[in-house]
Design a protein around this nucleic acid. Structure first.
Lengths: 218, 218
DNA sequence: AGATTCTGATTGAACTGTCAATCAAAATAC
DNA sequence: GTATTTTGATTGACAGTTCAATCAGAATCT
């Protein structure tokens, strides 16, 4: 769960400032995933990190700022993930769209804890400016990049349709299947979730995407 | 905001049991929409309904049960809405799919308060059995009905594709654009949201749906 | 190297405010 | 008159925040 040390019986005071912050953020993700936003307390976060509850306020000044830092961590991590995927993807717009979809289901990103935390933040987004402050820019960047690839592929492939709406469908379908994995009584697998997004891509770009993803040789 | 009385200076004891419960539920929706789940208190709910705070516990036994009743109200209302839309829709599967999509954007259902409340409940769904207990059956019924129409239209129109995944894309696209309306920095309009879902339908069923919805004469 | 000082991370108790739940009394309906 | 609904004060628990004391490790001195 916690990505850092916290192993030996006396690991105290071993971690740097940044590592300690990260440890508390990971603990926060875990608590939010398990208890929900409304029942996330500093005490539980500290307990899960094996630290005293005063520390959270020492490192983050307030509960709100800890939550904001947690969301920022998730958002930056997400952005770094899709940008890394694009860096090794082919130049064709279909390759780049396929890379973006695939990136959303990377095991490192698409974990139960992280998905649950994302959903919890979305649920609170309406009532707190925090979400838009932290994620607004990253979200717009992602939508813009995906829109560009969709525009290219629509033109390149001679497809009809509006790039903005196509990109939006692909993005919200991903978010939607994530939500399904959290809220459904009997959720389907991560592979089925990815296949669902690819089915949408195949509907918009039938000569570049098939039921199993990117079609070769185009 | 509140759909019921609360007008004259002394409206006390005017409403029946069911009406009073509904009044408290509407106030709860309003508070959740404005403050989020984590900051929803019984005191604020009662205040918004113009009642004293002891009443919430009198009519619903506990805060949890008030929240569950609120979710149940939303879920039943949603179900009644799409079933009413189906009752007046044509028999062709494309007509029925179009009716379901249209129903999701009815002004009575697709209000800022209700959307925000739905998102808040989704955010808490992972950590409380409440959501699945209350909505699981309705959600499965909706998915099953939509799947049936998709299966019929895929066969009838000679389309390729998997009915389960097509239905899932249409459903989560609707949920996704709802979420967008809540979380985006500069959200688009309800009409644009509906057009986005219709764009997805047009991708799967190009001979039955166009950019502006259901195509006539098919 | 060993002793001393300094820094700032860490703890845990105390304080404060808030909220859900309870309940006795008042108001209202039947 | 009796039953039901409503009020508003009270209670107890709990969470966020503050803070003084502690302590580990780094830096400095001899």
């Amino acid at each position: 769960m916690v990505a850092v040390v916290e192993t030996s019986p006396t690991p105290r005071r071993k971690l740097s400032r940044a590592e300690r912050r990260l440890q508390l953020i990971e603990a926060t993700i875990s608590v939010i995933a398990e208890n929900g936003f409304a029942r996330t307390t500093l005490g539980e976060v500290a307990k899960r990190a094996g630290l005293s509850h005063g520390l959270a306020n020492f490192h983050f000044e307030s509960k709100d700022k800890l939550l904001a830092a947690t969301l920022e961590h998730l958002s930056d991590e997400y952005r770094a993930n899709w940008q890394a995927a694009l860096a090794v993807a082919g130049p064709h717009p279909a390759d780049r769209i396929a890379a973006l979809i695939e990136a959303d289901f990377t095991p490192a990103i698409c974990t139960a804890d992280r998905l649950a935390a994302w959903c919890a933040f979305w649920g609170e987004a309406q009532s707190r400016p925090m979400y838009q402050d932290v994620c607004g820019q990253n979200d717009e960047e992602y939508q813009g990049v995906l829109e560009g690839f969709c525009r290219d592929l629509l033109a390149d492939g001679g497809y009809g349709g509006d790039a903005v709406r196509v990109a939006r469908v692909l993005r919200v379908t991903t978010e939607g299947v994530w939500l399904d994995l959290m809220t459904l009584q009997s959720p389907y697998s991560r592979d089925e979730a990815r296949a669902t997004v690819l089915a949408a891509a195949a509907a918009f770009f039938p000569r570049h995407f098939g039921p199993d993803g990117r079609l070769a040789g185009t």
